[in-house]
Amino acid sequence: MSEVTNLVSLVSFLVANEGISLRDAAKATHRTPARLLRDLERLMMCGVPPYSPSDYINYSLHGTGKAAQVRVKFAGHFARPLNFTPQETLALKYALEHFSRGADEQTQKQIDGLTNMLREALHGRVHELLNDAAKGFVTPRQTERMRKLIGMLSEAIEDQQLVEIEYYSAHRARLARRIVHPFGVLEIGAHFYLYAYCNTADATRHFRLDRIRSADPIDKFFDEQPPKRRDEGKMESLFHGKPKAKLVVRFSKQVAREVIDEWSDSPGVKIKQLADGRAQIETPLFNQFWAIGFVMGFGQHAELLEPKALRDELAQTVRSSLSAHTE
């Protein structure tokens, strides 16, 4: 998208939402308040002949700080936004499709309604793309149970209502009840997480949604805001947070090629091809449970070398799994 169309969209948005606060305008237009003000300054340079003061776009702030109300003047010619470009149409279509894969029934209906309304209102190429374009970003659809859970938690988040969850902690390998203050549902990597303050832990936590057995809102509400940094608290994810340690795994020559192909170019990963055909990878360890599953998947073709504690845990996991089949 060109800078021109971005700035025109911004003006159209501000004309339509006269008096919106700087904070809300920045959030809704997906930029920081400082960037919004910079963009407005640029727009003040734009005008038409004969260049009297009222021929230049202008803006004013009423009030102070991020609560100040923004008013744009002399921009009536941008009151109606420019039509969608094909790229914008596709981006919107792809985002709505992707969003619906984790949405509950009610949200799904709203998405269908919005898409149908757009199909009817828009014409030409944009209409064709909305109707005919194939799917662009395809991720697995969540189960009905998960989508219901996401919908229920979203409502509790909105209402700032406490929720009692029954959660299976892989770390403790047991189910436990906790009362949490839900702040957000986040999709990270291949999983959804509930980001919440946990009364039991007295800290923020990320709870994997598929590990929540039950979730019930209780008749209590909270006022506090979530911490600004979302990675605060214990982040049990492979993809985010600070690495806990270094994971070192050696692979047999039968699977070495596959591992090298898979892990080459991954950030932070060192690969050694050993003289006897075996391969060894070193990678930051973000999530011990993922690491155990990953190494177990290769069976005898992978040997976890470091960290020592995780090697012992893996051995214990293998023993437990064996005993379930032999006792």
């Binding site: 948005f13 339509a16 939402n17 969608f84 790229q87 914008e88 981006a91 970003f137």
Partner: peptide, 21 residues
């Protein structure tokens, strides 16, 4: 999706007229 989706949503919210939000 970042740039194109952002622009599309701004346009939709502007196209909805007053009270776009």
């Amino acid at each position: 999706l970042k740039t194109h989706l952002s622009s599309a949503l701004m346009k939709l919210q502007a196209g909805a007229g007053s009270d776009g939000l």
